[in-house]
Design a protein around this nucleic acid. Structure first.
Lengths: 151, 151
DNA sequence: TATTGTTATACTCTATAACTATA
DNA sequence: TATAGTTATAGAGTATAACAATA
């Protein structure tokens, strides 16, 4: 039983963003099931693949995730053998997160699976419109304050 | 300590939508504090103002909210004297939600407060870009499946 | 004293199950 | 039997507080 968007909420960003976000999570999560990892874990692999090894806390900062929340994300990747926690030589308190060989393969595969899910999410738009909306959203988010920083 | 968007996540919709959604909720919630209502309650007032009285369940459907979740939303509006629960003549199981006079005033005021919060959220974009991204998001969401319908 | 990772805990949001009163 | 509203409950997701190891 589908329904149309209420006219009075056509411009309500919390509503549009929230509804689309939930749908995006559902689609991307399902797309990643063959890899046995979640959306945040794929994002972690992507950041690590693009920027090299970094500490857990730094990784959380890059993902917009609190340091207490990143623990479970990294735990799952480690259990799946996709990353390794190594001691940082410069600071033995910190864990340097390193992607394994099988982690690199998973990252490349997951990247494509997610990309397809993103096309599905925006299937009502043309290719140009998909690029346009993605670019505008990214530009709307120029500076990020890390979570937990003064709430 | 702000940070930039990771290059590898520039197109990741779950990430962009999720981050912006949380920021939208924060900004709109703060904007609505003078009214003492939340984002969902303002949305409920907007839909009721635009479409007239309807049952609770219908209201939830319009907002994309489960019938068990809409209860607390309507409770809050009723406690604030902004709506009244009246028995539907045609079906005495159902509550017809009717906006009060003070509810109509709150709706108009809240509408403006939220609109300003939305401009703030997209302050990195031009007016035209704001309209464009909002329009594209609304078009990306043409048909909605109500929550809880087969998950 | 401050910071990294960690755990325990709490809070928010939202859904499923089960109840009641009507239909 | 089925549906509207309601409550209790459970599951995500994410944060704060506190602790051990290290700086």
């Amino acid at each position: 039983m589908p329904d149309t968007i209420p006219e009075s909420l056509r411009g309500r960003l919390s509503y549009l963003l929230g509804t689309l976000h939930r749908r995006a999570i559902d689609l991307e999560t399902e797309a990643l099931t063959p890899l046995g990892i979640g959306v945040k874990q794929q994002a972690a692999l992507d950041v690590l693949a693009g920027e090299g090894p970094m500490t857990q806390q730094r990784l959380g900062l890059r993902l917009g995730i609190d340091r207490t929340t990143i623990v479970a994300v990294v735990d799952g990747l480690q259990d799946a053998g996709l990353i390794e926690r190594t001691r940082a030589p410069a600071d033995r308190r910190a864990h340097l997160i390193v992607v394994t060989e099988s982690g690199r393969a998973a990252q490349r595969r997951g990247r494509h699976l997610v990309r397809q899910a993103e096309r599905d999410l925006l299937s009502a738009l043309t290719d140009e419109e998909r690029d346009a909306v993605t670019g505008l959203l990214a530009r709307a988010l120029p500076e990020r304050t890390p979570p937990g920083a003064g709430r």
